[in-house]
Write a protein that binds this DNA or RNA. Structure first.
Lengths: 261, 261
DNA sequence: ACCTGAACACCGTTCAAGT
DNA sequence: ACCTGAACACCGTTCAAGT
């Protein structure tokens, strides 16, 4: 379990909200959580989350590794603080009065945040993370998008969960296509797959492997005409598709609710 | 990028399908990827994925750490193999002819797999993982559930993606509640939160903090009557809610498609 | 109060050597 | 071909010491 303050709140929560008493006496060479978190984020943006080590962060600030421990209880806490700091939405947001539109806006804001700091997706969002400032902000805005809806609180929270999860998975997909996209499977490789992914064992996938459609980095099949299609580049379409599905489902639920009451 | 064979296929894919030529000459004390992966899974089941170190795996098998590198190119490959081996569905599955039912069954199978090996969720599912045997099986079964549906291939894959992501997030939620569930926020802690989560800054969340509803480990408010409710234990309800939403949305889409054609 | 230096117990991975 | 031993370059974190 994560270490907590005497109030039962996780230390990261207390620090993020500025609840921590920082006595400030004696000389201070100017280190602070803010500076530490900012430095860590810069490293993560540049070289990925795995490049964020206590030593690297300290070095980039011109301090020794151990100096960090005065401001941050450990790496875990640093990651939590980074996770929150990165998930910052714009200060002022004007949501559409139409809930469908508003929900789409909200999803889009989340998406933007995750896109700018892709390492956010790697940081485990534990139970306590909902208490962090920017998570609260995100939840608040999500609820704001749905104010007009005749749904229970639990249902609204359910939607926030499902939608944000969908957005996260789409950003993840987008990124995996982008940076691991050098996967190039040769014709020989596809042949090998054809031998193991047989019609008998995998009746529905096998046909797609035959044509090569199913294999990420394979050359497109020499089909007549429509060969030059981006095979999976359209994450955009998948993103919209899932969101549309959820909103459509919600619409039905609301109609059902209003016709009953 | 992950190391690949000369065919362009990731090594983990080749190994998992048994495409790797294993010459087998000279003495063999009986190590193999199968045994290594099995040992690693056992450790992960018992003590979590973080306990899976090359040294721990080797030790549990009675070999030195370095012996593993003859069978596995590195830890990354070991994790990929574990990820696939853990995502095994039952041999024979009888899907309902009703697609809604079938999709629910499929989701439920996924859920069961992730529940039995919760560390699966921590293993990054890269682009190449769709080529692993059990991923192919899962995709095949998902497509099987939707055979009767008048949807494009891309749409079906979209559904597989969205639904499986929803299932994953629900299992994740379930687990985070279970093992980090010792989070107990004292009344003083809730008070501190009330001071920062103000009505002004967070108009929609603030009321929920006032009552204490929003705070995971807080004591339930002394409301009249319905106080003794499990606050978030019903992941089951959230699970169904999201799935229902998606299926309802899909239903509409199908109606639209069939009325157009 | 704040920062440093040395040390500890780990990681994953390499390389040359044994049988 | 298979496994070992020693070594390397890292991790996060501790503790006692300096100013």
């Amino acid at each position: 379990m994560a270490d907590t303050t005497e109030t039962g709140l996780p230390r990261a929560v207390a620090v993020a909200w500025g609840m921590q008493e920082t006595p400030q006496r004696g000389p201070s060479r100017g280190l602070s959580h803010e500076r530490i978190v900012a430095a860590a984020m810069e490293i993560a943006d540049a070289d990925g989350l795995s490049a964020v080590t206590m030593q690297a962060v300290a070095k980039s600030l011109g301090f020794t590794t151990m100096s960090l421990y005065r401001y941050v209880s450990g790496k875990d806490e640093l990651l939590r603080l980074m996770g929150d700091a990165g998930a910052q939405l714009p200060e002022k947001v004007r949501l559409s009065p139409d809930w469908r539109q508003a929900l789409r806006q909200w999803a889009s804001l989340l998406r933007e945040a995750w896109r700018t700091h892709s390492w956010l997706l790697e940081i485990p969002r534990g139970q306590a993370s909902v208490l962090m400032p920017n998570s609260v902000r995100i939840a608040d805005l999500g609820l704001a998008a749905m104010v007009s809806l005749p749904l229970s609180r639990d249902e609204k929270i359910g939607i926030i969960l499902v939608v944000s999860q969908h957005v996260a998975s789409m950003v993840e997909l987008e990124l995996s296509l982008a940076d691991e996209g050098e996967l190039r499977v040769s014709e020989e490789g596809v042949d090998q797959l054809r031998e193991v992914i047989t019609e008998k064992r995998f009746p529905h996938v096998a046909p797609l492997v035959q044509t090569g459609e199913y294999v990420p980095g394979a050359a497109p099949p020499p089909g007549p005409g429509d060969a030059a299609e981006a095979p999976a580049e359209d994450v955009e379409a998948e993103y919209d598709f899932g969101l549309d599905l959820l909103i459509a489902g919600l619409e039905i639920r609301i109609q059902a609710a209003s016709s009953t009451s």
